[in-house]
Write a protein that binds this DNA or RNA. Sequence first.
RNA 1: GGAGGAGUCGGAUAAUGGUAUUCCAGCGGCUUGCUAAGCCGUGGCGAUUUGUCGCUUGUGGGUUCGAAUCCCACCUCCUCCGCCA
Length: 426
Amino acid sequence: MLDIKFIRENSDKIKEVCEKKGIELDIDYLLSLDKKRRDLIKKSEGLRFQQKKLGKEERKKAKDIKDDFKKIKTELKKIEEEYEKLMLLVPNVYSDDTPIGPDESGNKEIYRWGKVPKFDFPIKDHIQLGKDLDLIDFEKGVKVSGFRGYFLKNEAVLLQLGLIMHAILKMSAKGFKLMITPTLLKEFTLIGSGHFPVGKEDIYQVANPGKLADGNFIKEPLFLTGTAETPLLAYFSGTTFKESDLPIKVCGFSPCYRSEIGSYGKDTKGLYRLHEFVKVEHIVFCKNDNKESDQWLEKMKLNSQEILEDLGLPYRVIQICSGDMGAGKRKMYDVETWMPSRNSYGETHSASNMTDWQSRRLNIKYKDSKGEIKYVHALNDTVVAMPRILIPILECYQRKDGKIDVPKVLQKYLGFKKIPSSDVRI
RNA sequence: GGAGGAGUCGGAUAAUGGUAUUCCAGCGGCUUGCUAAGCCGUGGCGAUUUGUCGCUUGUGGGUUCGAAUCCCACCUCCUCCGCCA
């Protein structure tokens, strides 16, 4: 959400942002609602003032005012509902260096690391490797969980747990507070992170939200989050920090659920696009300053890159263009990792500067040195998302003999250097 | 699964239908000086013609000239019994 004053004063800019982000929104209508809203607030407050004054003196006259007041109040409520609905749709202004483009074709590669592996034998994809080495079972996954279901088995389990440990310990050493977050979330959290109202169809809603201690059903719907970003942000909703508390740095681990309704028929095979996965995510709150939050975005992006360099996986960094970034974002990078079976890079990380677009929705503020209350800037980025990252690991580290080397950085967590490892077989 | 309570500023607390009290903490200022003390100011949100005005007692409604107080729904917490990874 943006400041309505900012929208009033920069309506042409906002209209341009809507156009370049591919968002259809009638800003003039929003501004007309805003005008009506303020008129009605003035009227209703004036009546309330008189009513309160008269209430003490003359009760009959106060009663007459009450009817007018009620009428205005009803009208105001209607306008405000419409106004608030639109305010949630107003996109954030993208940074000056964001490429302008209609969709992913406008994204820009800005960095490349690592040597793409060359194989002198016919390679297998991770699906084949997973089957041959008994690491992934898609057939049983679909049988038990349905489309896009999967089981990880044996060394793949340890690989995933090792990756989590590596990521968590690394972020902890960098001064991030650690959390394991809930994934069953109330609606306000998803409005807060910006996944609602647009994008609602990608979030699962729980049909039976459960019972309370007193035996009654919970009436408020619950949703399964698609990322730990949402609960991490909502953890701090309603908080006013001291400026000296900033930056707030938190690293969260959670399962993630995505219906992928907009992606039917896309990436239907393998570990790439799944309904449920797990992810280590990190967020930062900093001062309300574009320069500072953009610097944090660079630092966070480097954390993602560092993980891939630890794993020895070749990657590239993409700067996302206006038309491919979400409504709430000011600036966004994807990091893509080399996936031999695709013969290309595939997205494994995503870093975004949301500025105060989320913190306004969630009411996350700080008192600056002058005593002024401001909204924090919020950023989020992947540390490691699994099992998608197993695709490049399994495929890049495969050997001619059909075995797979374990990336060196993970060996201490797994206790073996190659897959299969007799150590974990029963 | 059963029974009963409770939600007032960061913490504590008063107000049983008459317009939210007091204390502590924090922050700002002042005074006195000796290991600190005292005094004054200070919640948040919104509108504004910058004078102010409105809202804010968990949330949303209702009754009323007037609601923290009465009614309805929701959210949350606590106590006791039972069950449970």
